[in-house]
């Protein structure tokens, strides 16, 4: 197959970028999308050009490194699939494919298709953990967890932190990402002591990172490679509201 690519090129964070046209030739339907970009890069480099920068690592859909906007759809046309697991059989000979980086104020472009998602780490730092130090744990089976809760927590914990939810959201909201972690820990007995405080602090950090608000478009769930449900956003909101109503009176609610 042959395709026309229009790829976002931007040499540095402050440089002005633009879509640049390339031809992808001899594309095999069994190639992954990233392998198609690899081959293009090989050709560009043989001509002395600088390769298109894109984040990728495990290439099996779990590390969350990869992710680009493909024809206006986060991670491209295949549902429940990260860019690395998208194969070229999802496209037709002669297609034009527009490839852009995730767009959000909180995800500044580093180069070409690479963005900085450090904001996600900072949201986790705000409270996305159980405060237990190494060595302090009691026997694992002393905390029974109903299977339903454990399964639901796992559904939320499947988040790979790729940022597609933000990229696909018309508001640029990180609600699905934050809600997934709030719910993962909030559904388990281990997460209860910090449950409401966690929701308050993580939401506050999410706002601080200048993500937009959630208006329930539902695009995030559709873009999510792990198909994490917007039900968790409801859950996060509930925990946040309960937390706000019950937190001690402090500015911003929930600081130490």
């Amino acid at each position: 197959m042959n395709m026309k690519l229009r790829v976002w090129r931007q040499s540095s964070p402050d440089a002005k970028g633009a879509l640049k046209e390339y031809a992808a030739t001899d594309v095999s339907p069994d190639m992954s999308f990233l392998e198609m970009l690899d081959e293009l890069n090989e050709r560009l480099m043989e001509q002395g050009e600088v390769a298109i920068a894109f984040d990728h690592d495990c290439r099996e859909g779990i590390c969350g490194s990869c992710g680009v906007m493909i024809n206006g759809v986060a991670h491209g046309p295949m549902k429940g699939t990260a860019t690395c697991q998208l194969h070229m059989r999802s496209f037709k000979d002669g297609d034009t494919i527009v490839i852009e980086p995730w767009r959000a104020a909180a995800f500044p472009v580093v180069k070409d298709l690479v963005v900085n998602r450090g904001a996600f780490d900072r949201i986790i730092q705000a409270g996305g953990y159980v405060s237990v130090a190494t060595g302090a744990a009691k026997d694992a089976n002393s905390i029974p967890v109903p299977k339903e809760d454990s399964d639901a927590a796992m559904d939320a914990a499947a988040c790979i932190g790729c940022g597609a939810c933000v990229a696909a959201c018309p508001n640029g909201s990180a609600s699905l990402f934050t809600a997934a972690k709030v719910s993962h820990l909030g559904l388990l007995p281990q997460g209860q002591p910090e449950r409401y405080r966690r929701a308050l602090k993580m939401v506050a950090q999410m706002d601080l990172e200048s993500f937009g608000g959630c208006t329930l478009f539902g695009e995030c769930m559709e873009a999510c490679p792990k198909e994490i449900s917007i039900d968790f956003i409801s859950r996060m909101n509930r925990d946040f509201l309960v937390g706000a109503a019950t937190a001690p009176m402090e500015r911003g609610g929930g600081e130490d």
Binding site: P144, P146, H184, G191
Partner: peptide
């Protein structure tokens, strides 16, 4: 043995039986 204890305490959602145990 202690690793499993530690991970469960952190909230790692290991698979469970209906009785709630691992």
């Amino acid at each position: 043995v202690r690793i499993i204890d530690q991970c469960v305490a952190q909230g790692v959602p290991f698979a469970r039986e209906y009785g709630g145990l691992l």
